[in-house]
Structures are given as C-alpha cells and as structure tokens.
Simulated assay, not measured.
Amino acid sequence: MTTVIETCRIPPPQGAAAELFLPLSFFDMMWLHFNTTRRLIFYNHPCSEAEFFNTIVPNLKHSLSLTLKHYLLVAANLLYPLDTDASKPVFRYVSGDSVSLTIAVSGLDFNELVADHARESDQFYYLLPRTPTMSEEESYQIVPLISLQATLFPGRGICIGLNNHHSLGDGRSIFGFMKAWATINKSGDDEVFVSRNSESLPVFERPFCKDSSRIDGMYWEAMKKKPFKPASSHPLPTNRVRASFILRQSDIKKLKNLILSAKPGLVRVSSFVVAVAYVWTTLAKSCAGDKDDMFIFGADARGRRNALFDPPVPVNYFGNCLGGGVARVEHWKLASEDGFVVAAEAIVDEMNSKIHDGDGFLKARKIC
C-alpha cells in the first residue's frame, strides 16, 4: 500500500561548518539505551504525483540541506565507544555526513489516518523511515541520529515521518528543527528564518554547571553497564488500535472547577494538570492493581536558574534538557470516585516541589 520511490542522502550545503565534535552531557546520556522516537506530521495539501515529484520533493531536499547548515548536529553521528572504560560517547559531524530522506507514495486512506476514531495501528508504521543502521570504525560504534520520510497521498495530502535517537534532543529541540525546515521550505531560502531568529539560532555547546564533570561521570558509569544495542526496527503492534480523544476548552474549565470546588486552596491547577489527571484516573479505573501507581512527567530545564545552572541554560539550546517529577498515588485511591481530585492534587504537589521550586528542580533527578 505504501511504495518507496527513493532513498537519498542530504548533506548540509557547501560553506557550512566542516566539523562539530561534542561530548554528551548527563541530560543526553540517560537516553542512550532508549528506542528511537517516532513522529508523524500530516499536511492537508492535495496535489498530484507530478507536482509532488517535480516541485515539492526538490524543494524539500533543498530546504533540508539549508536547514542542516543551522542544525549541524542533526547531520552528525553518535559515536559509542567499544571500550567504555577508555572513552565516553560523543557527537561528531565531519564534512560529508548527511541525513537520510526517503520519498514514498501511499495508497492508504489519508482521511482515516488523520481521524479521531479508533483505527488500526499497523498502517502508521509504513509512513516512518527505516531506523538508521549502526556501523563500526576502529574504536567506536557509529549511530546515525535521524532519518526522515516524505509520503504522498495523491490528491489528498503529505506526511512527514521522522525517526530520531533520543540522545539527539528532546521534543522542543526536534520540533524546533522541523519548524525551521518548514519555514525555509516555504520561503525557498534561509534568509527569513535567520532574520526571525538572528539572536536565537540554535546553540549546541553542551550545558555546563559547576558540577558537570562529576554528574556526567556518574551517569556514564551507570549507562556503560548496559549493553549498547541497535534500536528495534518497525515493531508492528498487531491487533491494536490508535484513537484521539479531545478535551475542549469547555471540558478543561469543568475539570478545573471540579478540583477547585473540592480543593479550593490548591494552587497552579493548570490545563496540563487536569488533562493528565483525567487520563491517569481513567487508565487506573480500566485495570486492576494493588500497589502505588506512578505518573512520570518531564519539564523543560531551559531558562531556569537553579542550584545546578546559574546562569541558566539558554532557551535556544539544542539537545536534551529535561527535568521532571514522579507523582505517586495508591491504585485504589485513583480508581475511587474521588480519584480525579486525588490525582490532580498529587501532580500539583509534585510540580510545586520539583518544578516551580528553583532550588528543588533537578535535585531529585535519578540515574536510570
């Protein structure tokens, strides 16, 4: 149903920096053994195959190359040492490195894929690029950090799929790269992108704090004990479905009112809090359990002045920069009639002690 037409390599343009060499920070190291992160972005853009191949694809390739000039790390590789006692992992870009871009055409039902109702999960995986293959050189395993795929649904739309190693960056970084690519593709060159972001182009130098060396060493000692394996390729969750559930503004308001009527003294009851509390309790009520349930959430560490980072990590930093917290509630309380309020209170308490408290942020960060 989905046919691959071409797989090519897109390098940064001539004139881009010739080399980039960066050690991983502890923010990056914790993701070394995770599977790749996969995302699909659908665009409602009816076009013919002729327009797609003659105009859209050449523009995508050209704009991707220009984008890589500003996001050089995306075209780099992760070098993981074969002798983990002698070396640490690093990111390396050298002239000639590139990003894999796959071009495909699909006969799947575009409307079905972008709908909200339950639909088969398996079909989405055909829109993702293949997981990059590891190789070896002398003392390192070489891991490409990202691959991309553009899939045409003739007469209906286009899907951009991306597959990236999490050590490359968190969601803010990856979507920043994708937005830059979209801006440059729309304008045809990188002048508009640069003019809009002249003072906030991505920064790649790994964040440094007064305790960086010790903390990086602690994380590496933990990470290197686990075998470094290639990411799994396209596991299909057969016999499962995917659906979207929408909480409208009116729904959010009702949920907030429920919490505030039960806990009038609770502060910072945000839309995030009520949405995840609602989902968490719904999941708890759908399955059995006799222990504590945990809700783990991430939080952006950029721009936060705290015990570790003073001055703070710049907001235009590209990479991983996440703290977070863990809310715990006994399962029976979550599944009870008042479970929603209990969940919201637990999340708010954890956020107040771990996120909103500058001195507490990142202090409780655990080594995986």
Results as ranks from 00 to 15, higher is better:
residue 36 T to A: 04
residue 116 D to E: 13
residue 8 C to G: 06
residue 114 V to Q: 14
residue 146 I to W: 05
residue 254 K to N: 09
residue 90 V to Y: 02
residue 184 I to D: 00
residue 131 T to R: 00
residue 237 P to H: 13
residue 280 W to G: 14
residue 64 L to G: 14
residue 103 I to K: 05
residue 256 K to Q: 14
residue 350 E to D: 12
residue 68 L to P: 03
residue 99 V to N: 02
residue 274 V to T: 03
residue 180 A to G: 03
residue 203 V to Y: 10
residue 188 G to R: 08
residue 186 K to T: 10
residue 55 T to P: 00
residue 114 V to D: 13
residue 83 D to K: 14
residue 53 F to I: 07
residue 294 M to N: 06
residue 113 L to W: 09
residue 26 F to D: 07
residue 54 N to V: 01
residue 267 V to T: 12
residue 238 T to W: 15
residue 359 D to K: 14
residue 364 A to Q: 12
residue 132 P to R: 00
residue 77 N to K: 06
residue 29 M to L: 15
residue 338 D to E: 11
residue 231 A to T: 10
residue 67 T to P: 04
residue 343 A to P: 03
residue 337 E to V: 05
residue 218 M to T: 07
residue 76 A to V: 10
residue 315 V to E: 13
residue 188 G to V: 01
residue 102 T to W: 08
residue 39 R to K: 08
residue 183 T to L: 09
residue 205 E to Y: 07
residue 211 D to T: 06
residue 216 D to H: 03
residue 167 S to E: 04
residue 292 D to Y: 10
residue 356 H to I: 07
residue 69 K to L: 10
residue 269 V to G: 01
residue 79 L to C: 13
residue 34 F to S: 10
residue 325 G to W: 01
residue 305 R to S: 11
residue 210 K to Q: 13
residue 61 K to D: 04
residue 57 V to R: 02
residue 166 H to K: 12
residue 124 F to S: 15
residue 56 I to T: 05
residue 295 F to M: 15
residue 175 F to T: 14
residue 259 I to N: 03
residue 120 E to D: 15
residue 315 V to A: 14
residue 365 R to D: 13
residue 121 S to Q: 14
residue 173 S to G: 08
residue 27 F to P: 01
residue 271 S to M: 00
residue 219 Y to E: 03
residue 257 N to R: 13
residue 172 R to G: 15
residue 195 S to L: 04
residue 49 E to N: 03
residue 103 I to C: 03
residue 15 G to L: 11
residue 27 F to G: 06
residue 296 I to F: 10
residue 139 S to C: 08
residue 321 C to Q: 09
residue 72 L to W: 05
residue 330 E to N: 12
residue 147 S to Y: 02
residue 144 P to T: 09
residue 163 N to V: 01
residue 78 L to M: 09
residue 246 I to Q: 14
residue 117 H to W: 13
residue 335 A to L: 02
residue 6 E to I: 01
residue 129 P to E: 07
residue 283 L to W: 01
residue 241 V to Q: 15
residue 352 N to G: 08
residue 15 G to F: 11
residue 251 D to K: 00
residue 113 L to M: 15
residue 69 K to S: 07
residue 88 K to T: 14
residue 124 F to W: 12
residue 341 V to K: 12
residue 129 P to I: 05
residue 232 S to W: 06
residue 325 G to N: 03
residue 330 E to Q: 09
residue 338 D to W: 00
residue 329 V to W: 00
residue 233 S to G: 06
residue 116 D to M: 07
residue 125 Y to A: 07
residue 12 P to K: 06
residue 87 S to F: 12
residue 166 H to A: 08
residue 24 L to W: 03
residue 213 S to I: 12
residue 326 V to L: 08
residue 119 R to I: 08
residue 239 N to D: 13
residue 6 E to M: 03
residue 264 P to C: 12
residue 81 P to N: 04
